[in-house]
């Protein structure tokens, strides 16, 4: 593996694990963070989150990562799976 790739994977996995822990705590899931699949849908099916859970998740993502998703509905669409959240965080970090 190239250095760039291993750095990328390492930083992605670090964020992924943090997001998983937030999801576990927000959803009061009694499982290991590893058991949350990165592509699992968050709402409706998958983890089965609802609109009230979403409010807390958005606050946590802002508090922990400084990711601002409230306001525009399109920004809110960035949270559909764990991976899309990680994408949004990495995108934000790249921009700043």
């Amino acid at each position: 593996m190239t250095t760039d790739l291993s750095d990328y994977v390492a930083s992605r996995e670090a964020i992924l694990d943090q997001v998983r822990r937030i999801l576990r705590d927000t959803m009061k899931l009694k499982i290991e963070p590893q058991a949350i699949d990165p592509d699992a849908p968050l709402f409706g099916t998958g983890l089965g989150m609802d609109s009230v859970d979403a409010v807390e998740l958005v606050i946590q993502l802002d508090t922990v990562f400084g990711l601002q998703l409230s306001g525009s509905p399109e920004a809110f669409l960035k949270i559909r799976s764990v991976n899309t959240i990680v994408d949004a965080i990495m995108e934000m970090t790249d921009e700043s």
């Binding site: 927000t26 009230v52 859970d53 409010v55 807390e56 606050i59 802002d62 508090t63």
Partner: peptide, 8 residues
């Protein structure tokens, strides 16, 4: 930023 789930 209140805890919405707790508020409910």
């Amino acid at each position: 930023k209140p805890d919405a789930t707790a508020f409910a």
